[in-house]
């Protein structure tokens, strides 16, 4: 059986930016087989649909998963009210995650807002060979900067309003970075408009780019065909399932203009 349903105890919880929560749950079976870029589907009290939350980290020895989420609606609002010791019904590990290359490759990791959490696992993998460009509206919304720095990665913080770091978008920061730096692979997760810009820069520079997409989701396991995204290949346009064909796709596969 590839998927597991676990009752996961919350081991720790903190609010790392206004409305953004960082929880660690004990979920040994899922943690054991989890991979970078995968997600879990979390049951929220009183709601019909589970909420997909990407893995910000997993520890196979301790059997824990780290989930970082932003309060966006009823489900995440309920989740944010839970306390240490409470239990969550989760299924996982779900989805096709990131493809990792040799640790000596130069990776540039670009995250926008709440798209950043699933990319932390990548920074861990590439360590000093990673450069993480992360963008936020403003300095108080910035998250996970010390986690990223602790991996040994170079971090470039961007804010839309210039209140911290580079004043501008991650696309501008990446464009500047690529002028003087080598890069073998780009990974990105964030608002679609940002990922489209990152994908275009990657293509212009001939660099492999993997994107992690998001869509309103039903079953989370590929059965219901609700969470599709437009993709393209030599035979034309196809809707693929974000939950099992993704959430990670090659940027060249995505139909960005849909």
């Amino acid at each position: 059986m590839r998927y597991t349903q676990e009752t996961a105890k919350i081991m720790s919880k903190c609010e790392i930016a206004p409305g953004v929560f960082d929880i660690t749950v004990l979920s040994p079976v899922i943690a054991k087989s989890a991979r970078a870029g995968q997600f879990v589907n979390v049951l929220c009290n009183g709601l019909t649909l589970r909420r997909p939350i990407s893995l910000c980290g997993f520890n196979r020895e301790q059997g824990t998963l780290r989930l970082v989420f932003e309060v966006r609606g009823k489900g995440t609002d309920w989740l944010s009210g839970l306390k240490t010791g409470d239990r969550l019904d989760i299924i996982g590990p779900l989805g096709h995650g990131f493809t990792l290359y040799d640790k000596n490759k130069k990776a540039v990791i670009v995250g926008g807002g709440i798209g950043l959490p699933p990319l932390v696992v990548l920074a861990n993998h590439y360590g000093e060979n990673a450069t993480v460009i992360s963008g936020f509206r403003t300095s108080s919304a910035a998250i996970l900067q010390s986690d990223l720095a602790n991996t040994g990665a170079t971090t470039i913080l961007c804010t839309d309003d210039g209140s911290a770091g580079f004043h501008g978008f991650t696309t501008q920061a990446l464009d500047d970075y690529l002028i003087n730096n080598a890069c073998d692979v780009i990974y990105t997760c964030g608002p679609k408009i940002m990922m489209r810009g990152i994908a275009r820069l990657a293509q212009e520079n001939g660099i492999v780019c993997q994107v992690s997409l998001e869509e309103r989701m039903g079953c989370g396991v590929g059965a219901c065909l609700c969470c599709v995204c437009a993709t393209k290949d030599s035979k034309g346009k196809h809707f693929k399932r974000v939950c099992v064909n993704g959430p990670v796709f090659m940027a060249t596969e995505v139909e960005w203009n849909d």
Binding site: L47, T48, L49, K74, G75, E215, R216, M217, G218, C224, L225, C226, C227, V228, C229, A230, K237, H238, F239, D258
Partner: peptide
């Protein structure tokens, strides 16, 4: 059939629409 473009699902009180 390719089906309809997304979003294809939304939560509703005690249910969903697809």
């Amino acid at each position: 059939r390719e089906g309809n473009p997304p979003p294809r699902i939304a939560e509703t009180p005690s249910g969903i629409i697809n």
